[in-house]
């Protein structure tokens, strides 16, 4: 999973990338935020994804945009890849990388 994270982190304007399971917590990742802030954010993200998951509509991708940064999530089986990045990032490139990362995460879990 570290290789998957590194690939995402190599994209310009990505500040942090984490892979986490909704029940298992953070499995891999680094960058900003980290430490206490990351734990708090992870909890909020889990609850947000859980809330979106009502109506039998679990989100495949979720993008939360703020004035100074963005958080983009992609589902990878029972995991989520969470990327923190600037609002000016090239989204097309990020989407491609995240789709590949999602596929690779699912594959690595199956092994």
């Amino acid at each position: 999973m570290d290789k998957i994270v590194d690939k995402i982190l190599s994209i310009p304007e990505v500040t942090g990338c984490y892979i986490f399971g909704l029940t298992e917590g953070i499995q891999a990742g680094h960058g900003t935020p980290d430490g206490k802030a990351l734990r708090k954010i992870s909890m909020e993200i889990s609850q947000m994804v859980d809330a979106f998951g009502t109506d039998d509509n679990i989100p495949k991708t979720l993008r939360v945009s703020y004035e100074k940064g963005e958080i983009t999530l992609i589902r990878a089986g029972s995991f989520f890849i969470v990327v923190f990045h600037s609002p000016t990032i090239n989204m097309s490139l990020l989407r491609i990388a995240m789709n590949v990362a999602s596929y690779e995460t699912k594959k690595s879990v199956r092994r």
């Binding site: 979106f52 509509n57 989100p59 495949k60 939360v64 945009s65």
Partner: peptide, 10 residues
Amino acid sequence: FRYIQMQGDK
């Protein structure tokens, strides 16, 4: 906060 974009199964 500006917006949230969500793409789901349905």
